[in-house]
Nucleic acid binder design. Sequence first.
DNA 1: GCGATCAGAT
DNA 2: CACATCTGATCGC
Length: 401
Amino acid sequence: MENGMISVDRWAIGSQAYFLTHLHADHTQGLSPSWRRGPLFCSRVSAKLFPSKFPGFDLSLLRVVDIGRWHSLSIASPSSDSASTVHFLAVDAYHCPGAVMYLFRGEFGYMLYTGDFRWEAMSDRALIGRAMLLNALKDVNLDYLYLDNTYCNPAYAFPSREVAAKQIVNIIESHPKHDIVIAIDSLGKENLLAYISRVLNIKIWVWPERLQTMHLLGFHDIFTTKTSLTRVRAIPRYSFSIETLEGLNRMRPTIGIMPSGLPWVAKNDKGNNHPLGPPVIDPNIFKKYHQYIYTVPYSDHSCFSELKDFVKLLKPVDIKGIVTSAPSYTNPLYFFGHLCGTKQTSQALHQKNETLRSGGSKLHKKGVKKLQHTGARASRVSILRRVRRGAKVSDTDSTLV
DNA sequence: GCGATCAGAT
DNA sequence: CACATCTGATCGC
């Protein structure tokens, strides 16, 4: 938060309390096993996963925030002797396991920080979250909304995860003799994999660290690390590529499935990369992306229409985007200003397509020097990182490139 | 030397 | 493309 007394998904020095929305790496930059700058509030599921993400972390710093219940925290005011109280409520963000949004109440008014979230209006979980938020805000204004603006453009239109999951099952069923690899991250999309497993009555291979995560999350019979037990494997997204699929296909017929909201960007005209132009739906939707690869619009972020529903529901006085680093960052007020309180619309028109950068300016020139590195040191760093997250596999079994 | 951060990759 | 992630190189204490 801007007053500097509380940080959400930021871990630099200077705050009295720190809040974690979820355990994806881009929200934990700056956290490390040796971090101990203050109490760290997070959901119960995040707390459970915490030791495996940061082995050696001082767990006495963790404060579990129960979903749906108001908590409070006393913080010292920087300008006066008196302490003030901040109240906060965690609401299920329905993004990845443990992901929550935080509603804060304090001298600054009401502020909602969504973190990453998916707002599928028809889902039970979103309905519960909706009721919590409406109840908390029924008699007051929401002064600030920090919004997951990952897909804050009408060009981003994709179906519910339920629909996308059925598409994926259809793809698998239409390739009965193929091996299947599905790209996932270190956390998230467990429900998709569980759905595939249940419908097709098949186990899903995951890599060993991921199996540990699955066990912590309470999945005990669905996943395996033995390739001989299944033709469906979930592999890290960073190792999922055209080359990977080509390599696999030299051994056995294999297709890859990339579940993501990204390919469903509408493509604007070439020369005109104005991000605000009329949306044009990508004609390749639901089609093959490559000889061996299907991309399916399964997203853990809200699409544009869901963001719009969310803003309409909460009618915040002001909105700020959480994601500010994307090249085509768009101020949410451009699309949603008219749904907000006073004066935002005209303001938004002057702020459209504003690009915000974080503090570190990148002035380094590239390629000025090419130093040889000492191979010994590089591998030591790498090994330490592997050890920290728990013994990386060198599995001949999975035939990952 | 070591952790933090950056650049570049998928 | 870059949702999130990993690797190796470099920075800075």
